[in-house]
């Protein structure tokens, strides 16, 4: 796979480390059901066939965390944005 890094250009996936679902938000630790929410945040994952937004870290490049839009069926990558930049990857 080739990932279009917004800083480095299109680079081979070998340069990146994968984390997973980029749509999760770290729960509020002060909320009433925090423990359950953290359990879900840490352990529960969907396994979609199709569009997936996921975190990739450009470990051997700019060291930026990227939000990447990938189709899990075809590995087609339609875009990537840096985590700090607002907006959707594709």
């Amino acid at each position: 796979m080739r990932i279009p890094c917004p800083y480095c250009g299109e680079r081979d996936a070998h340069e990146f480390a994968y984390l997973g679902d980029a749509t999760l938000t770290r729960p509020d630790p002060a909320a009433a059901e925090a423990e359950q929410a953290f359990h879900d945040y840490v352990y529960l994952r969907d396994n979609p066939a199709g569009a997936h937004e996921e975190w990739w870290y450009h470990a051997n490049g700019c060291r930026q965390w990227l939000r990447v839009a990938r189709d899990t069926r075809t590995h087609a990558i339609s875009g990537a944005v840096a985590a700090r930049v607002a907006g959707e990857p594709a």
């Binding site: 480390a17 984390l19 770290r26 975190w55 870290y57 470990a59 060291r63 965390w65 840096a82 700090r84």
Partner: peptide, 17 residues
């Protein structure tokens, strides 16, 4: 070393930009 660095960058860039 590499794992912690990656983790700290995740915290900064993703959790608490």
């Amino acid at each position: 070393a590499a794992k912690v660095y990656q983790h700290l960058e995740f915290c900064l860039q993703v959790l608490w930009p």
